[in-house]
Amino acid sequence: MRDDAPVRGPDGVPEVTLPGVVDRHVHLGLVDRALLADGPVTEVHDLGWDPREAATWAADPPSGIRVRYAGPFHAAPGGYPTGRSWAPDAAVRHVATPREAAAAVADVVAVGGFAVKVALHAGMPLLPDDVLRALVTQAHAAGLAVLVHAEGDGQARRAIDVGADALVHVPWTEALPDALIARAAHMTWISTFAIHDGPGRPAGLELALDNARRFVAEGGTLVYGTDMGNGPTPVGVNEREIELLGRVLEGEALRRAVLGPPSAPALTAPFPPPETATDLITWLRASRRLPRLPR
Score class of each variant (00 low, 15 high):
Pro270Thr: 08
Met124Val: 02
Gly198Tyr: 07
Val108Tyr: 01
Asp50Ile: 07
Asp11Trp: 06
Val111Arg: 06
Val111Ala: 00
Arg93Pro: 04
Ala253Ser: 15
Gly71Trp: 04
Leu132Ile: 05
Arg201Ile: 02
Ala266Gln: 11
Pro234Cys: 05
Pro98Ser: 06
Pro199Leu: 07
Lys117Ala: 00
Pro62Arg: 09
His140Ile: 11
Asp153Lys: 07
Arg52Tyr: 15
Glu53Ala: 09
Glu53Trp: 15
Glu239Lys: 07
Arg256Asn: 14
Arg157Asp: 11
Arg2His: 15
Leu284Lys: 05
Asp153Tyr: 14
Pro88Lys: 08
Arg256Phe: 09
Val223Ala: 05
Pro294Arg: 12
Ala58Lys: 02
Val111Met: 02
Leu207Cys: 12
Ser287Trp: 12
Asp11Lys: 02
Pro62Cys: 05
Pro272Leu: 13
Val170Gln: 02
Gly152Val: 09
Ala269Glu: 10
Gly123Phe: 06
Gly78Glu: 07
Pro199Arg: 10
Pro291Thr: 13
Val237Thr: 10
Leu176Ala: 13
Asn238Ala: 12
Val44Pro: 02
Arg2Gly: 07
Leu207Lys: 07
Glu218Trp: 04
Pro19Ser: 01
Leu127Gln: 06
Leu244Thr: 14
Ala70Cys: 12
Ala277Ile: 09
Ala119Asp: 06
Gly48Phe: 08
Ala139Leu: 11
Arg84Met: 09
Pro270Leu: 03
Trp189Asn: 07
Asp11Cys: 03
Gln138Asn: 08
Val216Ser: 02
Ala37Asp: 14
Ala134Met: 11
Trp189Asp: 03
Asn211Val: 11
Arg68Ala: 12
Ala159Phe: 09
Pro61Gln: 11
Thr56Val: 09
Gly251His: 13
Ile281Gly: 03
Val170Pro: 01
Pro51Gln: 05
Gly220Met: 02
Asp23Leu: 06
His45Tyr: 15
Ala75Trp: 06
Pro6Gly: 00
Val248Glu: 01
Ala59Ser: 12
Gly78Ala: 02
Ala166Gly: 04
Thr56Glu: 15
Ala203Gly: 10
Pro14Ser: 06
Gly200Tyr: 07
Arg285Thr: 14
